[in-house]
Structures are given as C-alpha cells and as structure tokens.
C-alpha cells in the first residue's frame, strides 16, 4: 500500500551521519515488543500449522508424528465435506458481500446529502449493531427467528401472511445473510461516509454547472472517488465471510438440524480438532482455508489495483 511508497521517499531524504544512523537503531526498540508477539502468535502458529499438516499421528503411528508429505492436503481437497463447506462460504461471499456494500453505500450517500438531526440520529442507530458482539447478535436473531418467541408471526400477520420458518434448512442461508448484514452495514457505512466527507465539495459545484443531477453526481463522481475505501471494505468483508464461524455456530442449537457441525470450513476444522481430536487434519483444514483466503484477497486486490490505487 502507499505506506511502502512513502517509506522509500523518506529513506532517501535522510542525511547519513554516524549519529543519525545510530539513532535509527531505536527503531528496533520500538518495534521489538510487537515483533515478539508477531513471531509467537502469528509466525509460529502458522509455521506449526504447516508442520502439523505435513505429519500424521495416530494409533497406526504409535502416537508419534510421522511425515506424510501432501497426503493431508490431498485428503482435504478431495474431502466432500470440506469442499461443500468451501462452496457454501463462496456462495455466502457472492450474496452477502454485495448486499452489505450496497446497503452501506446507499445509507452513506443519503447521509452525505442530508445534514438534519434526523439523519444524524439515523447514522448512529444504523451503526449501533457494530457494538454488539457477534455471539449476542446471533443469539438475539435466533430468538427473533424462533417460532416460539419471535415477533415474526405478529409482523407477518399484520399484512395477513404466515411467517416462514426462518430456521428451516431451506431458509437458514438467508437468515444468516440477514444477521451478518445487520451486524456490519453500520461499520462499512461509517467508513464510506467518512470517505465521502473528504471529497472537495467544489467538485460538485462544477458538476452542477455542467447540468449533472443528484443521481449522476452520486454515481459518476462520488462512487468513483471513494473506490479505494470500497475496495478495502470488500476485502474485509471477503476475509470475514470466508472465515464464517460465529453466527452459524451460535444458531446451530436454535435451528435444530438445519446447520450441521461442518456447515463452514472453519466449523469443520473446529469440530475436527475439538470433537474428534484430529489436530493434524484440523491444522490442514485451517491452513488450507487460510491460504485460500490469503490468495483470494490478494487476487481481488490485484484485479482492483486501479481502483484501490495499489500498484
């Protein structure tokens, strides 16, 4: 990102006297505490997961880790459960990410044109779900969806309809999309809104002189000008959705039978590790998923490098 660019710029500007170069070593002092945590809780676990995924341990190997090469990966990528989970989170990405971005963008564009008290209050209310832990949000929606507790029947009854069972296998996908959208739209909206506020208003005046309407200003000027923020939001949403875990895990017990314990790749890895104690295979699943997420977001950033300003 641009940070590395400015780093190069700053690096050439510095006169290299001896005292100055000695002073630069203070950088190690400042970075060291984080570097230790980075090494122990990121590099080490990743390396360890990779090592575990290349070994197997079990009764057949007398409880010792034996090197098996890519065997676990061959197993994972031919494992119908894992592949089905992957395909499911990809479908979640395809539905959930656009829905969240569009709602957040519409809300932010509306807020940007309004400066009333009502619009400020709305902004705050739309943002509030961000402050709710995902577990509590999912629990709450579980209650709201529930035919026993929920207001769904009352709400649908108002217009003379029967509420669908939100927790059935057929509907659970949409119900989960709704929970995540509810949770994250406000956060994305605030980021988009802040980006919109940083556009120089004189640009709009020029556009109005050229006869542009409100909608044209929004779509032709505002959206292109905030494309780097949009790209970042999509990356965050993408990374978050591919790791989908908390909401389906919490909803599992309310939606009896509609969400199996291997619904998403992360849930499958969790169950493999903690229900079946197969840590080698669980590490393989986690590492494979992590790798795919990394590659997926990298490819996305590469394809959108023009919009995001990344070179």
């Amino acid at each position: 990102m641009s940070g590395s660019k400015s780093a190069v710029r700053a690096g050439t500007a510095q006169p290299t006297s001896k005292i100055a170069s000695r002073r630069q070593r203070w950088g190690y002092v400042y970075v060291a505490p984080f570097a230790v945590v980075f090494a122990v809780f990121l590099v080490l676990p990743l390396g360890y997961a990779l090592w575990m995924s290349l070994h197997n341990k079990g009764i057949a190997t007398a409880g010792r880790n034996v090197f098996v090469g890519a065997d676990n990966y061959v197993k994972a990528f031919t494992d119908p459960v894992f592949l089905e989970g992957l395909w499911r989170v990809v479908r979640f990405v395809l539905v959930m990410v656009p829905v969240q971005i569009v709602v957040a963008l519409v809300a932010a564009l509306l807020l940007d044109t309004l400066a009333t008290r009502l619009s400020r209050v709305s902004r705050l209310l739309i943002f509030v779900p961000y402050a709710i832990p995902a577990v509590i949000g999912a629990l709450m929606w579980g209650f709201l969806y529930s035919p026993r507790f929920g207001p769904a029947q009352d709400v649908f009854g108002l217009v003379g309809l029967t509420a669908p069972n939100f927790l059935s296998s057929a509907n659970i996908f949409g119900s989960l999309v709704n929970i995540v959208t509810w949770q994250w739209v406000g956060y994305y909206m605030i980021i988009i809104y802040a980006a919109l506020r940083s556009i120089d208003p004189s640009i709009y005046e020029a556009a109005v002189l050229d006869g542009a309407g409100r909608r044209q200003i929004a779509l032709r000027i505002k959206v292109p000008m905030i494309s780097s923020s949009m790209v970042m939001i999509v990356v965050f949403a993408l990374i978050g959705t591919l790791q989908f875990f908390t909401e389906p895990q919490v909803l599992r017990s309310s939606a009896q039978g509609a969400i199996p314990s291997d619904y998403t790749p992360n849930m499958y890895a969790f169950a493999t590790a903690f229900n079946y104690s197969q840590f080698n295979y669980a590490s393989t699943l986690a590492f494979a998923l992590g790798f795919l997420v990394f590659v997926g977001s990298y490819v996305f950033l590469f394809l959108t490098r023009k919009q995001s300003g990344l070179k």
Binding site: L46, A286, G290, V293, F294
Partner: peptide, 10 residues
C-alpha cells in the same frame, strides 16, 4: 490478510 481464525487451532 491472514484470517485470524486460521491461527486458533495451532
């Protein structure tokens, strides 16, 4: 870009 949940099991 490393998903934090990939780190939980290791």
């Amino acid at each position: 870009m490393v998903p934090m949940t990939a780190l939980v099991i290791p």
